[in-house]
Amino acid sequence: MKTPPALHVHQATVRFGEVEVLSEITFNLEQGQFLAVVGPNGAGKSTLIKVALGLVKPMRGHAALYGKDAGSMPERIGYVPQLKTFDRSFPASALELVVTGLRRSWPARVRAPERERAAAALEQVGAVGLIARQLSSLSGGELQRVYLARALVRRPDIVLLDEPATGVDFLAEHDLYALLERYQLETSATIVMITHDLAVARYHASRVLVLNRRVHGYGLPADVLSEQCLQEAYGHIGHAHALSFG
């Protein structure tokens, strides 16, 4: 029997009110691939990840991970949300946020083995020094690392990252790809990353999906990041990103 793909999306259509944000999205992603999802703002990239997470139910079509309906196996997924202004009045430490990745609920008391695993995950993302810090005292880049540790601590089979590099400085961004590639080598996990940076898509990804409400291209970076495909998705070749790869 053929093993089911890590991520299977079939004719998924999502509508918010009158607006069709995703139409007829279809693609298969095999285990162990590094997929970069690119597209302009408002293209529906975050929505696509939410479909894969089971947060947004498509009006038509469906999404499955490892042959199971989206949303049915949270323990196998590591999700790094788009950095948002989170509630700074919530009393919490970096350790507690990472432990939610293990427990899937908020910890009242962190047990010793949980602390060990959380420390190891923070170490992995170069943030073990943040373990006792209050979340409200962290910078955007530090917070992003803690969220990444939260996603990796459960050793997921698939990691979904929504613009993890936005608002992170260049050095940290380089670290990010290095550690994702290391994680992939160790575990042969699948990675799906939304990015604005076409260079990232070209040099780090093994697959690229060009998205703008519908799929404008899917395949190997060299094939997909073509002038025509990007022009189609971004609308005009004068776009700064498209130019550097035209």
Binding site: A92, L97, T100, S105, W106, P107
Partner: peptide
């Protein structure tokens, strides 16, 4: 624990 998690995010 679940209420706390849902309250956080």
């Amino acid at each position: 624990g679940r209420l706390g998690y849902a309250t956080f995010d």
